[in-house]
Design a protein around this nucleic acid. Sequence first.
DNA 1: CTCTCGCATGTTGTATACAAAATGCAAGTA
DNA 2: TACTTGCATTTTGTATACAACATGCGAGAG
Lengths: 229, 229
Amino acid sequence: MDGMTLPIARSSLPEAAAERLRTLIIEGELPPGARLNERELSERLGVSRTPLREAFRMLAADGLLVQLPNRGAQVVSLSREDVRHAFEVMAALEGLAGELAAARVTDADLEVLRGLQHEMEQAHACRDLPTYYRANRAIHDRINALAGNPILTHSFRTLNARLHALRFRSNLVRTKWDRAVEEHREMIEALSARDGERLRNLLVEHVRTKLRTVLETMDDQMKCVTGGK
Amino acid sequence: MDGMTLPIARSSLPEAAAERLRTLIIEGELPPGARLNERELSERLGVSRTPLREAFRMLAADGLLVQLPNRGAQVVSLSREDVRHAFEVMAALEGLAGELAAARVTDADLEVLRGLQHEMEQAHACRDLPTYYRANRAIHDRINALAGNPILTHSFRTLNARLHALRFRSNLVRTKWDRAVEEHREMIEALSARDGERLRNLLVEHVRTKLRTVLETMDDQMKCVTGGK
DNA sequence: CTCTCGCATGTTGTATACAAAATGCAAGTA
DNA sequence: TACTTGCATTTTGTATACAACATGCGAGAG
């Protein structure tokens, strides 16, 4: 019998620990800059230091931690420049995803995307930010999946996780929010027309716009911290 | 005194081991598919299993190893599809690098690049493949560095390492070699003109051409293995 | 009073011992 | 002969002990 090869992939202890830590970082429980004490964390996660250290290595490779020799690991804290760099790469990756997706998308895929777009627009109309973000992310994820390139998807996810660690609750100015929704509509259009180049350009521009928004949010947060008094 | 903060970065044992393994893999000493016995390797590298396992995690994150729970690590072996995916992403990254580089390149940078181009053309004239490859790689590396985006550079290097593990001795057909050199000349031109878009297109096309070459080489090697008798 | 040096304490780095899982082989059965 | 089953051996996974290094504090000199 064949066809049932390589099914399981039971997660190992280091992987499980890494997954747990990833969540803690992205949820903000372990904030940027936090130092990670091995003994303390290993007790908290209920594993010994050995698998925990392997988990550290994995997260460091993902860019969520930085490890300093003999001084342990700490949660990465991104500078303005880091964010800009990450978004630049992100834009290129999303652009590629769009280009590839346009060449492979089926009518069934388009239906799903239109459904998500609809959901997103409703959330926009109701000013329901959480639902909006969920639908928004689902759309981007799906376009990426459509590209059918695991390496691309992996890079995309990794970069995304790094940026999510920032936890910018960008409380979205009306005009920008409106524009983002409009951009999404155009993206679906380009995809329907199988116009890869146009979709690429739209996505690149979309990500660049988001960068500007995020940077402004970071500035605001800076102001709150430094000039608040 | 300030300005001398964070200079050192003494390499830790796991990092050193990872670096060593990386070399062994890329040089082909550890061929694709090879299983890595922890005890044997730890003796060979003169470290214990603990740091070696951390090295494994790092290399796995780079995509040079795959780790199967309870079954150890083995050197990745790329399928045709994997190669195509890697090159697709590579093209996007190089394209981005070109675009950014064109916006930041100085006249001094251009002089260096023209020097490398000259070196490459001479190697081409002399049919000196090793020198050609070295100059070729130097040019691409430099364009990437010019982009001034560490995240981009890191992704680029990582993907490159993965592909180098293939060790395709593409014995370069004349026509393709000529064309590659010509493409490089155009790239320097676009860079001189600070034409980012053109440079991006050239680089994307350049990488796609290389993909075709590599795939053909892989096919040939396949033929040698399967149909050689 | 300030700065430096040295020690005490805590934290990370590595090796190793032990546990758990997988692998290969041989004997037994259909 | 082909296939299964169980055991011996090998290999990986985890915990822990010990060593090396970093950090912070206090005493003493300038």
